[in-house]
Structure formats: structure tokens, C-alpha cells
Amino acid sequence: MEVSLVGLSVGTWIASSLGVAARLGIADALAEGPATGAELAKAVGAHPDAIPPLLRTLAMVGVFGQDEEGRYVNSALSEQLRTDHPQSLRYLCALTGGLYFQASGGLFDAVRTGRPALPSVFGVPLYEQLERDPETAAIFDRAMEDLARPVAAALAEHYPFEGVRTVVDVGGGNGALLKGILAAHPHLHGICADRPEVCGRAEGELRRSGDQDLIDRLTFQPIDVFRECPPGADLYVLKNVLHDWSSGSAVRILSSVRDAMRAGAEQSARPVLLVIDPLVEHDAGAAIRPLIKLVIGEDRTRERSEADLRKEAAEAGLEVLSVTPLPPELTVAACALAD
């Protein structure tokens, strides 16, 4: 599709269509080969007349395609909407084309007032809305798993875990980051700390998996991230957490982790916190991220620089030891207790 004002103006329909296709699992239905609109509709529980306009719209931007007989097929892009794809983005697309797309309907007022859009649309902030909508909350959990998967692989390969026994992932969702790390390092134990309802869903999913080794080494602990954090770990991780919050809230979260690090200092020679977050100096999405924050972030949330993170860490009693880019858009800041 050519870039034009008309083309850009219908981009919202493309985003919404992508979210619908992801949520229905159309790419999974096409994994075995081409299918007609009627066959797809039956497979995913949709109306047969609605499948063609949805997939033809997405085909304009390279998502899905058709063979010589007019049957629908996966493209290179739609392959990533398959649940079993190693770099699957199915649930991230379902989230951005669903809840986040709905929230963007409040962007006009957000730009006029400077207040985030999502609370004005739904009446409550993001995490309260997720508590009210269990189906979307489950999609959110899996979307965070899509984002965690490549980070887990990079950490498992490059971080020196030899001297680490226990890792706590603060705000770790369904434990995807820890699952990747623990799979690569059998000596580790992990604690995933998050909101009670998130831990409940994740623990039930882990039990149903039947993976006894992981069940033995991974636990879920409900917390209020502003008030508490499991003590006694050698390594703490905050991945894609701080960027959702204002500077004041970030300091409160970092202070909660600091307290846990201090409480467990006797068990660990020097506990370390890895803050994995976008920083403007290394962020490939820096141009659009402030707008994303205006839609779904906390009030007064803004993009962070390395200087901002160092200041927040210092206010929380932490020292930034190193800052390392994690392509394409994240940065790993290793922190320790300040002397």
C-alpha cells in the first residue's frame, strides 16, 4: 500500500484487523496449508463473509496472502502470528490491536490535557482494567511473554550465572523470562513476583504443564511491587516495568527491590539488580514511545535517559554499575546497593 494520507488514515483498521486475526488464531489455522474463507471461518469460529475482507486488508501490508486458487495462506509476516513460532508475536498483536487500540480512542483528549488516554476511556488505569477483564488480562500475560522470550535467550547466553543461585523477576508476569533462563541453567531457582491474580493464573498454567523440573525450580509470589519484594536472592530483574511509571513511582519500585536486597545481603555476597528497560540513548522506538506512554502509561510518565535512571537509582539507594544496550530497543543497567 502506498504511503498517502488516505493510506495512513486507515492504518487504524489495519491495526485492528491484525489484532482480530491474532486473537482468532487464523495463522494457526493456516499452519497445515491453504484454506478457503469458509474453511477458516469454521476453524476459528467466525462468519464466512467476514474472513475475506479481513485477510485481504491485511494482505495489502504483507500479512497473509492467497494462492492461485484464491485460498488463503500464511506469509512470512503472518507466520509470526502462529502460537508455536519461536519468535511469535501473536498475543502482542492481539493486545496492541485490541485493548491498546481501544485506548487510543481517547488520544484526542490526552493530547489536549496531557493526561493518559486509557483511564479516560475505561475509567480506571491499565492494571485495574485488566483485573476487570480476565480474558484481556490473559492476552496481556501472553503478550508480555512474547516480549520476554528474546530477552530471556540473550540473558541466558550472555549473563554470568555461575555464582547465582536464586533469581527474582519483579513484575515477571507468567514467568516467561525465568523459564528461559532456568531452562539454560539447571542449577538456578527462580521466583516470579507479580500481582496476586497474575501469579494465580501463571501458577495454574505451570501446574497444568506437567513440567516437574520447572515446577520444582520456579515459584510464584504475589506482591505489591511498591511495598515488598522477596528477599534473599542473588539476582533481581526488573524487565519492561519502570517505563510504565512516573519517576516518583519508579523510585518507589526500586526502593522496594533495594529493601529486599538489603534484607538478603547476608545470604548473597552482593545481590545485583538488572533493570532492563528502554533508554532514549539506545531505543529504536524512541520516536513513538512517548505517544505510547500518553495512551497507556501512568500520569506524568515520560521516556527515560541513562541520566534519569541513574538519578532514580541513587534516590532509591542503589548504584548503577554498568549500562549495556540490548538490541534493538532495550538497555540492561546492572545495579547494586550503594555504599
Rank of each mutant, 00 (worst) to 15 (best):
S268Q: 01
D308L: 03
R310L: 05
D277W: 06
L274P: 01
A284W: 04
L309T: 03
S268K: 01
Q267E: 10
D308A: 07
A269V: 02
H282Q: 14
A313P: 04
K293F: 12
L273I: 04
D299K: 13
L309F: 13
L274N: 05
L294D: 08
R270Q: 11
A269R: 02
V295A: 13
R302Q: 09
L279C: 09
G264T: 01
I276T: 04
A307C: 10
V272G: 00
R300K: 14
A284C: 09
K311P: 00
R310F: 04
R300W: 11
G297D: 07
D277V: 08
A284Y: 04
A284G: 15
V295C: 14
L294E: 12
I288S: 08
T301R: 12
E303G: 11
Q267Y: 01
I276K: 10
K293L: 15
A269E: 02
V275P: 00
T301W: 10
K293I: 05
R304F: 10
H282S: 12
D299Q: 15
E298H: 06
R302C: 03
T301P: 10
L273W: 01
A263T: 08
L273C: 06
A269C: 02
R300Q: 14
D277Y: 11
V272A: 03
R270L: 02
G297A: 10
P271Q: 05
G264M: 03
H282L: 11
P278H: 14
L279I: 14
A286Y: 06
L279N: 13
S305V: 13
G285Q: 13
V280I: 10
Q267L: 02
L279Q: 11
D277T: 12
A307W: 06
V275S: 04
K311V: 12
R304N: 09
A287N: 02
K293N: 08
E281I: 09
G264D: 06
P278V: 03
R270F: 00
V280D: 15
L291T: 00
L309A: 05
I288K: 00
E281T: 09
D283P: 00
V295D: 13
R310K: 08
E281C: 14
A269S: 07
K293Y: 15
L279T: 13
R270E: 10
L291I: 07
K311W: 05
R302A: 08
P290E: 05
H282C: 12
A314M: 06
D308P: 03
D299T: 11
Q267I: 04
R302Y: 01
R304W: 15
K293Q: 15
D283V: 05
P271E: 00
P290N: 12
S305L: 09
I292E: 05
D308I: 04
H282N: 14
R310T: 04
